[in-house]
């Protein structure tokens, strides 16, 4: 009985330590951390295909209702990093899961528009995203507390 208890608690501890979720290499590009991270989480480039990042970086003057324009050199530097590590980039670590079910004809501009994101969040009530704690679907770290380390774990609130 005791052995079973020990086994069970070890299993539970193990499960807690390796909670399900997404683990990506943390964003380590200085300009991306500085500029994108000024207003929101510097989202992992793996979460969108290269064509999406291209369009986002080409339209910073109207970035989801705000002017997020950058000096040309800074914007080019960030765009190159995002493209090189995008979901469909051969050099990206762990990008393929984010391409699943994505229509090749679509260029999502929001991570939250992608099939993988919607599927991963289909159990969350919409009101939850508007709550005082979360405020916005863009606010990953409200629920995924270590999102800035590339970890988007389930049941992490």
């Amino acid at each position: 009985m005791r052995r079973i208890a020990v086994f069970l608690s070890a299993w539970l501890l193990g499960a807690a330590a390796s909670a399900d979720g997404i683990r990506l290499p943390p964003v380590d590009h200085a300009a991306t951390l500085e500029e994108c991270g000024a207003c929101h989480l510097a989202y992992p480039p793996q979460m969108l295909p290269a064509r999406s990042w291209g369009r986002i970086m080409d339209s910073l003057a109207d970035h989801f209702g705000e002017d997020a324009s950058l000096a040309e050199a800074v914007s080019a530097d960030i765009a190159a990093y995002l493209r090189a590590n995008a979901a469909d980039s051969p050099g990206a670590v762990g990008g393929q899961r984010f391409m699943r079910r994505l229509d090749p004809a679509q260029t999502p501009l929001r991570i939250t528009e992608t099939p993988w994101w919607q599927r991963d969040h289909d159990e969350i009530r919409p009101a939850r995203f508007e709550s005082a704690k979360v405020k916005s679907r863009a606010n990953c770290a409200a629920c995924h507390r270590t999102a800035d380390k590339g970890e988007f774990l389930e049941d992490d609130e």
Binding site: C39, H40, F64, V134
Partner: peptide, 26 residues
């Protein structure tokens, strides 16, 4: 300006001594 941000205090706190918040919750 843009409809979501008609004032400095749309994102910055009304009291500048307090932290504000971006529309993305940061």
């Amino acid at each position: 300006g843009k409809p979501d941000t008609p004032s400095c205090t749309s994102c910055h706190a009304k009291d500048p001594a307090l932290p504000g918040e971006t529309r993305a919750g940061k």
